[in-house]
Amino acid sequence: MSFSERLQKDFTTITLALIPVAVVINIVVGQIVATLKLPIYVDSIGTILVGALCGPLPGAITGAISNILWAYITGQIQTAPFALTAFVIGLCAGFFASKGVFKNIAWTIAAGLATGVIAALVSAPILVYVNGGVTGTGTDAIVAYFQATGANLIQAATIQGFISDPIDKTISYLIVWLILRGMSKRLISQFPRSQNILTEESQVEGTS
């Protein structure tokens, strides 16, 4: 299947209806996590979900838009460049899902870790170039420690990312794995990449 055919197949109406809902899930779940003062972000559940159900590009767009909207509504304009990280997280989720990782919890964890590592690698240069290496939160102590012990800015930012991102993304992947388990087959089968999740899909005859 060619790339543009694949895109047309992924961007069905149900994909388009899901994306804004997933964007809102990202933001609201992120806020709930903040309310509960949990030591994680978990702000990409919707992104990973769309990647799994609809493909890499829909997932990536969900991530990027969530991030930009977040910057818009909170006034945290300087977080907008991290839309690139969110975009890549969506791509990763779509890619790993197409390899069937969500059919198996061990693979789900592995994919979460891998996505976390990739997210850290993408974030680090943005963090350094835009933010001067700091986030304005407690994790800056890690950056200070590694810079004090000889790391340069990009190294310190990457290490800081390696410490927080893989855990966060693994938890997010596990939550998505749980959500997918709880969804009815009937609902899952409406999405373009349902075969990412469902093990045996019943044979369908042509409809025309």
Partner: peptide, 22 residues
Amino acid sequence: IPHFFRGKLQGKVYVNGADTQQ
């Protein structure tokens, strides 16, 4: 059906004489 829901369809629906499947 058949443009949104997937499944096994037999028979025809005509709207103003036009086959909905076409």
